[in-house]
Amino acid sequence: MAIALPEQGLIALRKSVSRRQLYSNLFAIVGLISILVALVVLVALIIHLLSQGLTSIDWQFLTSPASSDAEEAGVFIALVGSGLVMLVTTTLAVPVGIAAGIYLEEYARKGWLADLIEINVTNLAGVPSIVYGLLALGLFKYALNLGESIITAGLTLALLVLPVVIVTTREAMRAIPSSLREAAYALGASKWRMVKDHILPYSMGSILTGIIIGLSRAIGETAPLVTIGALTFITFLPDSPIQPTFPFISFSWLLSPFTVLPIQMFSWVSRPDLAFEAKAAAAGAVLLALTLLMNGFASFLRYRLRKGIKW
């Protein structure tokens, strides 16, 4: 038979419960304040950037090269430079990163070596970007003699993005339940068929999201590109990849000098003329818009590719 709690005990119990509820509520308040601090700073930053730069953003700003006259200066060359560097980065980092991720997750034998590689790749994702810049300076610029060119910058940023792509690929593939792998194997699929027909399509949404997040980190990188010697003032475009004469396609743009948006912004900030400060803010707004656009695209892809795929 259950014994009824005496009056005294009941009061003590209620006290203890309300004390614990108080702690619980306190934590919720601390958490809310933390979020607000982060949000307010972000919003203030964006508002500041836009209020300074928005008036400078017009068609002329987007289509003009850099100039020593603040009135005429624009981000066109930097925009093209950013685009071309990201093109090289994507072309190199994405296939290599996905292939490496597939190999590590599906093919490599599990053991201490695999663990060691995994720890290293994860740590590489956190290495400061300037360190990659130093590596690129020695390897690409001097040892391979690629100069202060778009290809050097693309390779450098590809190194930076590669671990992110590998880690995301592995995590996306790991999220696929082993029952689906076994189902494919039980029908007589080879490892490659299983990866190609099942693992890759089911995890593509998450992989692409990771890639785009990695790339939007790369597009804002300044330090490693300054290290390899990106120009801060440049008024001409790289050679066009399409030529009027045979063989019509040229890769000489890969070896052109370049600048990118964040470097352009940095160079304007460091000028004494105050008129350039507004230009810098405008370039920052363009960069921010690009990053937001890429993240939005990532969300869109994730939504589209995951539709109908669930387990």
Partner: peptide, 19 residues
């Protein structure tokens, strides 16, 4: 093992159709 699985089919504990 692929040759074996081509001749021997399997049905699992939980239904596991492909998505």
């Amino acid at each position: 093992p692929i040759e074996v699985r081509m001749r021997v089919g399997m049905v699992f504990q939980r239904p596991n159709p492909f998505p």
